[in-house]
Simulated scan of single mutants.
Amino acid sequence: METKAAAVLNAVPPYGHLIASEKWRNSSLIQSLKGGGVKILFEKELGVADFHLPNKSCILYVSECDIIAGNSYKRKLVRYRNSSSSFQELVLVENTRLSEQYFSAVQKFVVFDLGLTLLPVSGQTEASQLITQIVHGGGGRENPFRRRTSSQLLDPLILALVQQVPGVGRVKALALLQHFSSIQKLCNAAPAQLEPIVGHAAAQQIHNFFHKATAAGT
């Protein structure tokens, strides 16, 4: 049984497929994924993760309800970070009208305290669109996101995260991820380090974006 559980924790679905925790079977997110042509494999023993993607990343989904209900989601995130999975661990967080007042604290905990990659989504519909993009385009012979580095920073989900910064489009996001060897180094970069890559205005916006959570917590 332990061998089977370990195998499931590290199971990589083929491209075009997704492994989902059984608890998501009847969700609107799954229905949207199916509508996008994603083939779903359900599994009861995924551990803490909610989804496994073909690019050897996994996702933990933190919903609006999880955030509003209190701090129990933090224990789940710590277990997720400490799991024995060999996957790159990503966190999708619902940033909605009801949860936005808590978002900076969640961002600080996920990115700065745990060192995980956070991607905000407005809900399950937006999450399904992002996941569908990764499932259909997250790998293959000509995948540009794997070309330059073994740090996995050019993963499409992380690229999408950097593009959330105001004033940063796809070109600037790629340049930043190719320059900095970890998401933590990008988060902690001074404007003077960013300016040669993206220019003065964008450098200040990037610095402010990644430090607003720290400022909110002080």
Rank of each mutant, 00 (worst) to 15 (best):
Glu43Cys: 11
Leu46Lys: 10
Leu46Thr: 13
Gly47His: 15
Val48His: 04
Val48Met: 10
Leu60Phe: 11
Ser63Asp: 06
Glu64Arg: 07
Cys65Val: 15
Ala69Pro: 12
Ala69Trp: 10
Ala69Cys: 14
Lys76Asn: 06
Val78Glu: 05
Asn82Trp: 01
Asn82His: 06
Asn82Ser: 05
Ser83Thr: 09
Ser85Lys: 14
Ser86Leu: 11
Ser86Asp: 14
Ser86Trp: 06
Phe87Cys: 15
Phe87Ile: 13
Gln88Glu: 10
Gln88Ser: 09
Glu89Pro: 07
Glu89Ser: 10
Leu92Pro: 03
Glu94Ala: 02
Glu94Lys: 01
Asn95Cys: 10
Asn95Lys: 08
Thr96Ala: 08
Ser99Leu: 07
Glu100Met: 10
Tyr102Leu: 03
Ser104Tyr: 12
Ser104Val: 08
Val106Arg: 07
Gln107Ile: 00
Gln107Trp: 04
Asp113Thr: 15
Thr117Cys: 05
Leu119His: 02
Val121Asn: 00
Gln124Arg: 03
Thr125Ile: 10
Gln129Lys: 08
Ile134Trp: 01
Val135Ser: 00
His136Gly: 08
Gly138Ile: 00
Gly138Pro: 02
Gly139Lys: 06
Gly140Ser: 07
Glu142Gln: 14
Asn143Gln: 15
Pro144Gly: 04
Arg148Glu: 12
Thr149Asn: 00
Gln152Gly: 12
Leu154His: 08
Val162Phe: 04
Gly167Gln: 12
Val168Pro: 00
Gly169Arg: 04
Lys172His: 07
Lys172Asp: 09
Ala175Gln: 13
Leu176Arg: 08
Leu177Gly: 04
Leu177Tyr: 11
